[in-house]
Design a protein around this nucleic acid. Structure first.
Lengths: 137, 137
DNA sequence: ATTAATTCTATAAAATTAGTAGGGTTTAAA
DNA sequence: TTTAAACCCTACTAATTTTATAGAATTAAT
């Protein structure tokens, strides 16, 4: 399941993607349009900025805008940024690999093999969903 | 990600699947073989029993055994029993459907459509992984 | 200077997770 | 019929994560 943070991030990105290219959106504007608590959204937008998905303009008349193309922001990206690994266990993860503390011999683990299969399929599916594909409905 | 409970459940089921058909496994035996805290495993086995995946024999020389065929226990089943919905949001779930409180009009939600696609693909993949397929390596 | 916006850090309440504790109940063997 | 060995059940707890909120600092345009 997605955290609220990830869900709100996606909704915010969808909002930005639907504005004109040159438009700069204020946090409060996004928050109201997408029913997201404003102060919470502030943090989320900063995370998206640190992840180089959005850019910002500070000061009066400032706000946020898409930095990457809608076609280059995938569900997998946002999941990883806010909710971490796509895989079902850290030992089956590419980007968030961690050994299981209760694992005796990883290469012999019956579970890991199956979970790597799942990760591959889920990842492919999540990479197929982009902000652009969602906006196009 | 899977919870420890779901992971332990899968490891316990894998252990049971590798025993002879007639063998009854004690909790302590599974716990030691699979490095699972015994008292925690007790709860998990009870949940598996309530889910009709395993059967039990009480009293002295009692224990647990597989109730369903290894081919009929899927990763999707165990995920749902311990970790709930397969879908990334409750509004995109079949078995754990819930409306989003921040959603104005669900039929118009751009996110939901994509998440239903993901759920369908993930579910198919997870239903393809059975205890039998994991044991066969 | 003033105003309006982002940025940053700290805090807090609520929920979830990962167990632990301590019995109660059932069964079978001695 | 007593006893031991196992499952069964409920409650509790400590730690972590999640979901925010608060308030001040910084930045930029007028």
């Amino acid at each position: 399941m997605l955290s609220h943070k990830a869900k709100y991030a996606l909704k915010a990105l969808l909002y930005l993607a639907q504005q004109e290219e040159t438009h700069i959106s204020r946090t409060i504007e996004i928050a109201e349009a997408a029913s997201i608590p404003k102060k919470f959204l502030e943090q989320i937008l900063l995370d998206l900025k640190r992840g180089h998905f959005v850019g910002s303009k500070q000061g009066k008349f400032g706000g946020y805008y898409l930095l990457k193309s809608k076609n280059d922001i995938t569900l997998a990206d946002i999941h990883r940024l806010f909710d971490g690994a796509i895989a079902l266990l850290p030992c089956a993860s590419l980007n968030f690999y961690e050994r299981c503390s209760d694992c005796v011999d990883e290469s012999e683990c019956l579970l890991r093999h199956g979970l790597i299969t799942i990760r591959e399929e889920t990842l492919k599916a999540m990479q197929g969903i982009t902000i652009a594909s969602l906006v196009k409905k």
